[in-house]
Amino acid sequence: MPKLTLDDLKKMRESSRKNLSLREGNFRGKLIVHLGTCGIAAGARGIVDTFLEQFDEMEVSDIMFATTGCAGLCSEEPMITVELGDSAPVKYGKLTPEKAIKILEEHVLGGSIVKNLALGVGSERAG
C-alpha cells in the first residue's frame, strides 16, 4: 500500500467533513431524548410528544430531534441531552413537560443553559 501523504489526509478530511455536514443537514444543534427502558417507564415518551408539538408550534426547523438509549443515570430519568454547535453537550434530568418547554425556550432556542435543571455538562463517556 502506498504511503499516505499529508495531502491525502487533507483530502480525506475534506470528504468526510462534507459527508458529515450532508448528514447533519443545516442543523444548529441536536436535541436528544433518552429512551432506555428506564426512561420510557419514567415518562420519556411524553417528553418526546411535548418537543414534537412545540417544534410544530414554534416552527423549529434548525434543531435535529433524535432519540437514544439509557445514559446510565436511570434514577434521573426522563433525561435529555442538548448539543448546540460545537459546545459540550448538556444533560437534563427528572423532566416534566413544563421543564422540557422551559429548556427548549431558554437553552435550545435562547442559547443559555437552564442551570437549576441541568445535571451536568459533557458526555457520559467522558475521558
Binding site: 431524548v33 429512551l35 415518551r45 418526546v48 410528544d49 414534537l52 430531534f65 433524535a66 432519540t67
Partner: peptide, 12 residues
Amino acid sequence: DLGSTLMTLIAG
C-alpha cells in the same frame, strides 16, 4: 397511545 409510540419511533 400507539400513535405516540409510532410518532416517537419514526420521527426519532
